[in-house]
Amino acid sequence: MRIWEIILIGLGLSMDAVAVSMTNGMIYKGLTKDKVIGMPVFFGGFQGFMPLLGFLLGGLISGIITQYANILVFLILGFIGSKMLIDVYKDYKNPEAEEKVVEGNLTYKTLLLQAIATSIDAFTVGIGFSAIGVNVVYASSIIALTTGVCSLVAIFVGKKFGNMFESKSTLIGGIILVLIAIKSLIG
C-alpha cells in the first residue's frame, strides 16, 4: 500500500476526531496548552493504536467490536452532546443566570471518551490491514500523525468559530456531537 493511500485512509478516519476537536475548540474558551496538545495526542494516538489492535486481534473479537461499534459511538458522543444541550436549555430556562462561558472544563476523562468513540472505526481498518498484509506499524503511524495534525488545525478553526458565535457555540457544539452520534447509528 502506498503512502498516499494510507494518508487518504488517515484523513477519512480522522473526520470524526476533526469534528470533535473543532467542537472542543469552539466551546471551551479557556483551553489550556496541555489540553490543546492533548487533543491531537489523544485523537492521533487512538487512531494509530486501534488499527494495531485490529491487526493483532483480527478475527478473535472483530465481530463483536464491529457489531456494536456504532452503538458505542452513539452512546458516548450522544451522552456528551446531550449533556451540552441540557446545559444550554437550563441556562435558557434560568434567564437570571449570567452568560456562562465554558472555561477549560474539558477533562482528560472526557477527552479519553471522545478519542475512543472517534477511533473505533480504525479497529476495522486494522482487520483489513491484516487481510491484505499491510505493514501495520508504518500505516498506523501515518494514520496517527495525519489525525493529530488535522485535529490540531481543527481546534484553532473551532476557536475562530467559537469567537464568531459566542453564546451559541455550546448549542452548536452539542448539536454537532449529537448529529455525529446519530450518523453512527445510521451507518
Score class of each variant (00 low, 15 high):
residue 9 I to F: 03
residue 16 D to G: 04
residue 37 I to Y: 06
residue 181 A to Q: 08
residue 74 F to Q: 05
residue 168 K to W: 07
residue 167 S to M: 11
residue 63 G to R: 14
residue 89 Y to C: 02
residue 46 F to A: 02
residue 126 G to I: 10
residue 126 G to E: 09
residue 93 K to H: 00
residue 143 I to P: 00
residue 25 G to N: 04
residue 58 G to P: 04
residue 173 G to E: 14
residue 84 M to W: 01
residue 104 G to F: 02
residue 61 I to P: 05
residue 186 I to S: 05
residue 29 K to F: 10
residue 73 V to K: 06
residue 67 Q to Y: 09
residue 65 I to G: 10
residue 153 V to R: 00
residue 32 T to S: 11
residue 152 L to H: 00
residue 148 G to R: 00
residue 114 Q to L: 03
residue 60 L to Y: 10
residue 150 C to A: 15
residue 49 F to Q: 06
residue 48 G to F: 09
residue 172 I to A: 12
residue 37 I to S: 04
residue 129 F to Q: 03
residue 92 Y to M: 06
residue 100 K to Q: 08
residue 16 D to L: 02
residue 22 M to P: 09
residue 3 I to C: 05
residue 149 V to N: 03
residue 177 L to I: 06
residue 150 C to H: 01
residue 171 L to T: 13
residue 19 A to R: 10
residue 37 I to C: 01
residue 40 P to R: 02
residue 137 V to K: 11
residue 54 G to L: 09
residue 35 K to E: 13
residue 1 M to Y: 09
residue 127 I to V: 15
residue 46 F to N: 02
residue 49 F to L: 15
residue 12 G to R: 07
residue 117 A to Y: 01
residue 111 L to W: 04
residue 19 A to F: 10
residue 97 A to T: 14
residue 66 T to Q: 15
residue 89 Y to Q: 07
residue 124 T to V: 14
residue 106 L to F: 06
residue 117 A to G: 02
residue 153 V to S: 02
residue 155 I to N: 08
residue 91 D to R: 12
residue 23 T to M: 13
residue 79 F to N: 07
residue 83 K to R: 12
residue 153 V to L: 11
residue 72 L to Q: 03
residue 90 K to G: 04
residue 130 S to D: 07
residue 154 A to L: 09
residue 31 L to T: 00
residue 139 A to Q: 11
residue 110 T to A: 11
residue 163 N to L: 07
residue 129 F to M: 13
residue 9 I to C: 04
residue 96 E to I: 06
residue 81 G to F: 04
residue 59 G to H: 11
residue 178 V to R: 05
residue 33 K to A: 13
residue 90 K to H: 05
residue 159 K to V: 04
residue 43 F to C: 11
residue 86 I to T: 14
residue 184 S to C: 04
residue 146 T to K: 04
residue 106 L to M: 13
residue 63 G to D: 15
residue 76 I to W: 08
residue 180 I to M: 10
residue 37 I to M: 09
residue 115 A to F: 07
residue 82 S to M: 14
residue 45 G to H: 09
residue 10 G to I: 05
residue 186 I to E: 06
residue 41 V to F: 14
residue 105 N to M: 13
residue 75 L to N: 04
residue 76 I to H: 07
residue 79 F to M: 11
residue 107 T to C: 00
residue 136 V to L: 04
residue 158 G to A: 14
residue 110 T to G: 03
residue 173 G to C: 15
residue 178 V to T: 11
residue 83 K to S: 12
residue 111 L to Q: 02
residue 133 G to P: 05
residue 75 L to Q: 03
residue 113 L to C: 10
residue 60 L to M: 12
residue 186 I to L: 12
residue 140 S to N: 07
residue 138 Y to G: 13
residue 103 E to L: 13
residue 121 D to I: 13
residue 28 Y to T: 03
residue 68 Y to G: 07
residue 134 V to C: 06
residue 28 Y to G: 01
residue 178 V to M: 12
residue 159 K to R: 15
residue 74 F to Y: 10
residue 98 E to G: 11
residue 28 Y to L: 02
residue 90 K to S: 03
residue 36 V to F: 01
residue 151 S to M: 06
residue 128 G to H: 14
residue 30 G to R: 10
residue 167 S to I: 12
residue 182 I to P: 08
residue 37 I to G: 03
residue 4 W to G: 04
residue 94 N to I: 00
residue 36 V to C: 00
residue 143 I to Q: 02
residue 39 M to P: 00
residue 41 V to N: 10
residue 171 L to I: 12
residue 31 L to S: 00
residue 85 L to M: 13
residue 53 L to K: 01
residue 1 M to R: 08
